[in-house]
């Protein structure tokens, strides 16, 4: 085991521990969502959320197209309606119903990436959004 891989393993262990610690304070609904998607990597989720993707629609190349880059504030749909902030700390009702979470991943991943998100991509994004 090289030093860097040891560091990476330590970082992953730390991340998993942090996720577990966070999960302990989650509402039952959020715990169920995390349990279904599996533990994710918040840092990877953040990178994924802010990245410019290809394969989706021209006017929605990133999650931030509608959710904006300040996730503690409301976003806006293309039809002009406000979207509640994505940060879990600002939207207590979010991420507590698996069907709703899956619905929006299905729709928005298709629009932004041109495909559905993988289970780990979803887990990462949820981990990130629950951490802020």
């Amino acid at each position: 085991m090289t030093l860097s891989s040891a560091a990476r393993a330590a970082a992953l262990a730390l991340a998993l521990a942090a996720t577990a610690a966070a999960a302990a304070t989650l509402s039952p609904g959020r715990q169920a969502v995390v349990a279904a998607l599996g533990a994710g990597d918040a840092a990877a989720g953040k990178a994924f959320f802010f990245a410019r993707h290809t394969g989706g629609k021209a006017d929605t190349p990133a999650c931030t197209a509608c959710h904006t880059t300040d996730l503690t504030k409301a976003g806006q749909t293309k039809a002009g309606k406000a979207i509640d902030p994505m940060a879990a700390s600002r939207a207590p009702d979010r991420f507590s119903d698996l069907a709703t979470v899956e619905k929006w991943f299905r729709r928005n991943c298709t629009d932004v990436l041109g495909r559905e998100c993988t289970k780990s991509e979803k887990a990462n994004v949820i981990a990130y959004l629950l951490s802020i």
Binding site: K57, D59, K78, A79, A99, K103, R106, R107, N108, T110, D111
Partner: peptide, 12 residues
């Protein structure tokens, strides 16, 4: 609904 005015608005 899969292509609802440019957006995926599909439902279960």
């Amino acid at each position: 609904l899969d292509d609802h005015y440019g957006d995926n608005a599909s439902l279960d």
